[in-house]
Nucleic acid binder design. Structure first.
Length: 611
DNA sequence: ATAGGGTTAG
């Protein structure tokens, strides 16, 4: 079914299955000189055919097998069939005695070739290696651990760690960072940190691994602490460090720090690296400055697929769906072959701009490019349908997927049900979510609000009861604003910020002025429904967005753009409040939501109230 | 013949 070169070059490449080990032709074969030039399986097969004609094959020659395995495994995740073929070749070798063969094969799994089962396959290869009495080296451990990392297989990873310790390889300068990375990829930052703390702390790569681990685990503040620490130690950041730190800035929405890193990058003359520029585009876009993102993109000497994809998503995130699509068309015109990530970007752009039919067409066209759609693509299509109000169709779409849907998929649909006020569909969906994951506070909140807004009081009470029975808690709303290189965080209602009293007073003042132009608090999205109307109004008044916006108004010069980052989706009341603030106080407000950006200016928002 | 760290639906 695949059209890989494998089908074109079947069995002749396989060494004969014999009980006797093949004779070791270590005699010189002049054809071996051509091996390095065989950069495809097809070429290798041709060489083999020539060898057969000349009398005597090549397939038993170690150099030939190595080349074959390398070619197959370096395709990694893109061509699982190649990897399977390499494995087949390998399994037919009676007594593989060369570490390189094992390492090469393990590398294929390390690159994600085995998918979710990659770690187990890698472990099996390792066991075979032990049985054959072949001694593993550091590359063996690196690849084995990477295989566990890319398969997110924590259990196998821990076992591999144990084996590495026994072999005395765990502290090796290449193995140790890989261990940190493995634990981070498997979601265990604490284990990663334990590994990190056990090291001398003079190694840039370990710092890089730990910084990345922190960013991956949504601990960007921790990443920045590590970054300062390594600078204090005199360790020189590499491009990888800077890329990770930029990613931390992106998470925090720390534009000023991001600009500082950008200057540093220029000073270090790292600004010609494509990946560094891609990280810069991502940082600027996620910190709310689409202009700067475009600037970096335009100044790039060359751009790869990732750069295009990141720019496309940046446009989409800021509400420029059409521009995002034209980026996609442009990159195709320039001869770039879109991949799974590129399509994720296009679908994302379509769903956020209400381009339903285009989105569905792009989704269908994935097959023409030989891309298998994954759960994330399905997520985009679900969003595309659901957001535009085709709830029933979205439900069917999820229900009939060729793979088991995740709670996230249903969650997407649930949000849309809330947006369209369809409590019946919402209920069906809510039940589907509970079957898969009943620990997510947001689901209860959304559904209970939907019930409240449609007058389904008994159901609402049931949901709330269920929620407290299960001990599920609501994630508190948190908004941050960066002023003079300091990130200020505000939580809904609480007074934890040193300036929160000040911010509260400012909110009171702002609200009074907004009331003059017709602002009426809209309490329909206040979760604590057992509150009285007055209490509800108070809770709403001190939503984290309002605190952050007011604090920003108070502490910046008139006319300064306010950049806010929120950890949840913005509530309708805060959204209309921000629109009014932009008009009354003549400020641009750029608010980053869990999902997208809202640019408020002159009383309107760039999302067109579609979010 | 091989190696460690980097962007991605909601």
């Amino acid at each position: 079914m695949s059209s890989s070169p494998l089908t074109a070059t079947p069995s002749p490449l396989l060494p004969a299955k014999s009980k006797n080990p093949p004779p070791h032709h270590h005699h010189h074969n002049p054809l071996l000189a051509y091996l390095p030039h065989c950069t495809s399986l097809r070429a290798l097969a041709q060489l083999h055919a020539v060898a057969v004609k000349a009398g005597g094959g090549l397939q038993a020659h170690p150099a030939f097998v190595t080349r074959l395995l390398t070619l197959c495994t370096e395709q990694g995740a893109e061509a699982p069939a190649h990897l399977a073929y390499a494995r087949q070749v390998f399994d037919r070798i009676p007594h593989p005695g060369d570490v390189v063969w094992y390492n090469t094969l393990l590398r294929g799994y390390a690159r994600g070739g085995g998918g979710g089962g990659g770690a187990e396959e890698a472990a099996r290869v390792f066991v075979r290696m032990m049985e054959e009495g072949v001694a593993p080296d550091t590359y063996t451990f690196v690849s084995l651990l990477k295989a566990c990392a890319s398969a997110r297989a924590g259990e196998e990873g821990r076992q591999a760690h144990g084996v590495a310790v026994k072999a005395g390889a765990a502290e090796h300068e290449y193995v140790a960072p890989t261990l940190i990375n493995m634990y981070a990829e498997c979601g265990d930052v604490r284990a990663a940190r334990v590994m990190f703390d056990r090291m001398d702390g003079e190694c840039v790569v370990s710092y890089n691994a730990m910084i990345t681990a922190s960013v991956r685990s949504s601990l960007p503040g921790e990443a920045l602490v590590l970054f300062r620490e390594m600078q204090a130690k005199g360790l020189k950041p590499t491009s990888v460090t800077l890329i990770s730190v930029l990613s931390a800035c992106a998470l925090l929405g720390a534009l000023e720090l991001g600009r500082w890193i950008h200057d540093y990058i220029r000073k270090m003359r790292l600004d010609s690296l494509v990946k560094v520029n891609t990280a810069l585009i991502d940082m600027y876009a996620k910190c709310g400055s689409l202009e700067d993102a475009i600037g970096v993109f335009q100044d790039m000497e060359s751009r790869d697929k990732q750069a295009w994809s990141v720019m496309m998503v940046a446009y989409a995130n800021h509400g420029y769906g059409r521009e995002a699509i034209s980026m996609f068309e442009e990159m195709k015109k320039q001869g770039m072959k879109p991949d799974d990530v590129t399509f994720l970007g296009v679908l994302y752009a379509c769903s956020h701009s209400g381009m339903v039919s285009e989105g569905l067409q792009y989704f269908d066209s994935m097959r023409e490019y030989g891309i298998v759609s994954g759960i994330k693509h399905y997520g985009c299509v679900t969003d595309l349908l659901a957001r535009s109000g085709q709830l029933e169709r979205a439900y069917k779409f999820i229900d009939e997927l060729p793979i088991k849907p995740t709670a996230i998929l249903w969650r997407t649909l649930l949000s849309a049900c809330a947006g369209h006020g369809d409590v019946d569909m919402g209920k069906r969906v809510f039940e589907r979510i509970l079957e898969l994951d009943d620990s997510h506070g947001g689901d209860y909140v959304i559904f209970s609000n939907l019930c409240a807004n449609t007058g389904r009081w008994e159901e609402m009470n049931m949901v709330r009861k269920l929620m407290s029975e299960k001990g599920v808690v609501k994630v508190p709303g948190c908004s941050s604003i960066e002023i003079d290189n300091m990130v200020h965080e505000f939580f809904a209602g609480d007074g934890s910020h040193p300036h929160s009293q000040e911010a509260r007073r400012m909110v009171d003042e702002v609200i009074e002025q907004l009331k003059l132009v017709g602002y009426v608090p809209n309490t329909s999205h206040v979760f604590h429904v057992e509150m009285g109307e007055e209490e509800k109004a108070t809770s709403l008044r001190y939503h984290s967005e309002k605190l952050a916006i007011s604090f920003g108004l108070l502490n910046t010069a008139p006319g300064t753009t306010l950049r806010i980052v929120k950890n949840l989706r913005v509530c309708p009341d805060c959204h209309s409040m921000a629109k009014l603030v932009s008009m009354v106080f003549n400020r641009r407000i750029i608010l980053r939501d869990l999902n997208r950006f809202h640019h408020f200016e002159d009383g309107v928002c760039s999302c067109g109230d579609y979010w």
